[in-house]
Amino acid sequence: MELFGGFFEQYGQLLAQATWDTLIMVVVSCVFAYVIGLPIGVGFAVTAPGGLHPIRWLNMVLGWVINIGRSIPFIILLVAIIPFTRLMMGTALGVQGAIVPLVVSAAPFVARIVEQSLAEVDPSLVEAAESFGSSNWQIVYKVMLKESLPSLVRGVAITFVNLFGYAAMAGTVGAGGLGDLAIRYGYQRWNEEVMIAAVVVCVIVVQVFQSSGDLIARKIDRRRA
């Protein structure tokens, strides 16, 4: 107990700050990744062959953008777009500097999982909606997005956990947060306690977010009684 008390007195502040920084990075970049990725994913699903409004060339372009975005390893993307990050945020360092590469890397991922969620919607429901005179836009937001909501929520949880991992990587190049803490104290100074504490916090945060995602998805899923 004594031992723990001493540890928290010394590192508690540091750990809390790192956790806070990571959460800010992940939540903000998750929001922006959806702002960009959701419309792309919807567009990709809608323009697909056999989709609501097939447009071959647009679908191919979107497919390419998504695949290229997803094929660049995060650690390389992080460094490669530093000039762009500076342009956007004025700095490539700290929490602000991490958000740009996190968004750029997560948006194509979001687009892909949104498209997958929409693909699960029963085509006969889309047909029924058409038979009542719905416009394509109405079918997208009144039927496709609404019917796939539980799946979309699960997608948010997955995206969050992915971003959490990426945010730790961003820590290695000066982004701050739990990854930074684990590297500087744990790896470079051989301070095992801090490293273990950082890992424990990571596990707890991921568990909390994943379980709440699952819980919400289950709560709003009306497909089974």
Binding site: D122, L125, A128, K146
Partner: peptide, 11 residues
Amino acid sequence: MIFQNFSLFQQ
């Protein structure tokens, strides 16, 4: 229009 598998919106 009505359908074989009802096509009701589940959500």
